[in-house]
Amino acid sequence: MTALATSSSSSPLHFWGYFMDHRSTDLSWLWSHTWLSVVPVVIGLLVALPLGWLARRYRFVYPPLISLTGLIYTIPSIALFVLIPPLFGLKSLDPKQVPIALTLYSIALLVRVVADGLASVSEDTVQAATAIGFKPLGRFFRVELPIAVPVITAGLRVALVANVSIVAVSGTIGMSNLGQLFTLGFQNSTNGPYYPPIVLGIVLCVLLALVLDRIVIILNILLTPWRKAVRS
């Protein structure tokens, strides 16, 4: 039954049947794809917060930091993947090279977002917070950071959606994630197009990107209740 189903249709619309037939593999790929997309962004944010704060606090840090992160962002993903092992002393095709590269990208993007987000907090607000008696650290966590949340979440959305696409790229160098579906589809298309895995891969990637994007939007609404009050 299963074998019959896979061979009976190569139509693009058959992706759901394909998914049902290869559920366990596909789900494990989806699972690792999700982790690879999310974890680097979380680590990236944790690293970017203090760096962004530094860039905001000491203005002279901002330009070199932005240049450096811009440089990382300039390197194409596939090139960064293959450059990570020699730079980090890993063996080639180490499974760690993808999360490391993605973390670097996430840091690069988010440092700038955090710095700009903090810069968007009006000087009056900062002065007022200081005048009320906040110490620098308290002021950062209880005044500046909350106000910068919309800007930072906008950056998180960008980073997550980009990561979903980049993780798929790592499938082309053999990493196991949804990118494998494209490799499979391509390899099985030598005698005429075999669409199901390719379409399934695209559908799952887009769904994953949309779901992650939605989660950040909801997070943003929960973290900034005052914006809702203004809207209604």
Binding site: S165, A168, A209
Partner: peptide, 19 residues
């Protein structure tokens, strides 16, 4: 369009057009 996985679209178009 940005949410589309680049590799996937590339492979899809290739198997459609290349033959």
């Amino acid at each position: 369009l940005r949410a589309l996985p680049t590799v996937g679209v590339l492979v899809l178009l290739t198997v459609v057009i290349a033959p």
